[in-house]
Design a protein around this nucleic acid. Structure first.
Lengths: 334, 334
DNA sequence: ATGAAAGCGCTAACAT
DNA sequence: ATGTTAGCGCTTTCAT
């Protein structure tokens, strides 16, 4: 391995000078600078970042903890973070938390061991207190998709309520009166918030949600199928179905289809997330866009900003809004 | 930040002793050991990995370079690597290469700067020579999904030919005689290899592929739609369609469907990859399973093994096989 | 069993 | 403009 000393020796200068050249620092003569540059080139010298990190006490490293990278949603999140990292020439360390509390904390600890300056955490499992403590200890910690009032300025999240309201009102405007909801059991309270948004909007339109018209299941394809089956079994009548996410929506559509109910002719369906699968299925899914890549990018920049404790950051929370993406799974009721 | 010195001071021992305790080394008295442990606990001491890496000249870090994490396939790949990393308590650094040569090399270089011991590279762009040079320089470099004979023992790849043959024979066995292929333009030569596999199998069954029956497009949903449109436009007759991947298969199915051609009743379709979307679409896609997570896991272990140059590793290549996953997109021809 | 000390590769004050 | 030097936090011989 070629070190700064090797370069210094060959170039006939001190290591300090080499360091200056490497960092484009001043106080180096032109001739000297170009000579050193040439030697660096020839020897293929690359600074040892561990050594740099050791003395600088900063690693220019950004960590991300998500449940599972193979899920489209988290892959997209990671992508957003990655882009921000690259823009700021930060390195990216990743860790799956696989839905377990301990693993989530393990992941964070390992990132801390590596002296990540900034950490983006998609936590679904840890309780608020743990997170608040963590935020206190780690200046560059940012929570994505979770809102904790006490550390509001560390939270980058989506306005689930408004999203749910938008979806509902959209359906109401299309003439729908009979609603069903396929929701999820989830660690954070997004499902509740969305459900409330739906109910409020319905109430505002003098409509109501039959209690049998809400089914809960795991937030995936099978969950959607299952929930829809239960819905059908109860016999509630509905022309509009709001799903917790795209996967559930698609699962529900399959179940409906198998029962001879067509989407959107007989029942209109709205999903949530706008995963790429939403336009790969038939009918193409009308869904609420979750700008996760954008949010992740923003969160990464925020985390980097926060990690520099010398700079003050305005104390505000970071709330993103969802838009509806109109495709083919919703029809108008005459 | 609490350092080893702090612990030493509080515990009234030398840093050497603390180091021994931290690493469960011998030559430490029981009383002393437990006292040090207690202090470590109390102070919340965590070794600085940068310092460790500096002196040990190894970082226990594994790097991955893939084109784009938001694509399901690469997310799954990353997941496999992550699991292996976690098993061996390696840390994971990721980098998207976003399909550009330079970026691919940038990504690798940045991993090297971080002194990654092991690197998994999904390269689609760099030429063989570059990769061979790289492999020479980096003992722990492993290529995934690419086979380069000169560095065969660094390659973890899939037998595309046998996969293509399996798919074709499967269709032949179902009675199909008229084939069409939707293939892709791609940086490596997987598409060609698969196409050859298809043709060979057809020939072996005294069948042949009409030259208008092969269409090339980008390896995504839109590409599949486009290719299928062209296929239809040429008027070639076919009852079996083999697509380069699941996305193209689904795109093609959409196009066929829009043209009033039903899958699998009128045309049978086989995909490739077995992404999660393959069972989320209707009809559920019969497809060739690409064991990418398993392969990635294996590749990570291999890279770690190789990075330890003191240990000899058997000189062999690492070829994985694909299996067919039977679902609902293929029917029997009487 | 424990400690002292050298040094990993680099940066940043301080000298010159 | 350039060099000298003292660490950053840790491991590892070598003493004791």
């Amino acid at each position: 391995m070629v070190t700064i000393k090797d370069v210094a020796k060959v170039a006939g200068v001190s290591t300090a000078t080499v360091s200056r050249v490497v960092h484009n620092g001043g106080h180096v003569g032109d001739a000297c600078r170009s000579r050193v540059k040439k030697v660096i080139e020839e020897l293929g010298y690359r600074p040892n970042m561990n050594a740099q990190a050791l003395v600088k006490r900063s690693t220019n490293t950004l960590g991300v903890v998500t449940p599972k990278l193979s899920m489209s949603f988290f892959g997209t999140l990671a992508c957003g973070v990655e882009k921000a990292a690259k823009d700021q020439s930060y390195k990216l360390i990743m860790s799956n938390s696989l839905y377990e509390t301990q693993s989530e904390l393990d992941a964070i600890n390992s990132l801390r061991d590596h002296h990540c300056d900034a950490i983006i955490l998609h936590s679904e499992y840890s309780d608020e207190k743990t997170l608040i403590d963590l935020a206190e200890k780690i200046p560059g910690l940012v929570l994505i998709n979770r809102y904790i009032p006490k550390i509001a300025n560390r939270c980058v999240w989506l306005d689930n309520e408004s999203a749910a309201k938008q979806a509902t009102q959209y359906l109401v405007d299309k003439g729908h009166k009979d609603f069903a909801v396929v929701t999820s059991i989830y660690q954070n309270n997004d499902p509740e918030i969305r459900l409330r948004g739906i109910q409020d909007t319905l109430a505002a339109n003098e409509l109501q949600l039959h209690k049998n018209a809400v089914r809960e299941a795991t937030a995936n394809l099978e969950g959607g199928e299952q929930a829809a089956k239960e819905l059908l079994a109860t016999g509630v009548k509905f022309t509009a179905l709001i799903a917790y996410n795209d996967l559930m929506a698609i699962g529900a559509i399959h179940t409906l289809f198998d029962a001879g109910i067509r989407v959107p002719e007989d029942v209109s369906v709205i999903g949530f997330d706008n995963l790429s699968i939403a336009k790969a299925c038939r009918p193409k899914l009308t869904t609420m866009h979750y700008p996760i890549e954008e949010m992740a990018h923003y969160a990464a920049e925020l985390a980097i900003k926060l990690s520099d404790t010398s700079k003050a950051v305005s104390n505000r929370t970071h709330l993103f809004l969802s838009d509806i993406v109109e495709r083919d799974s919703v029809s108008i009721i005459q």
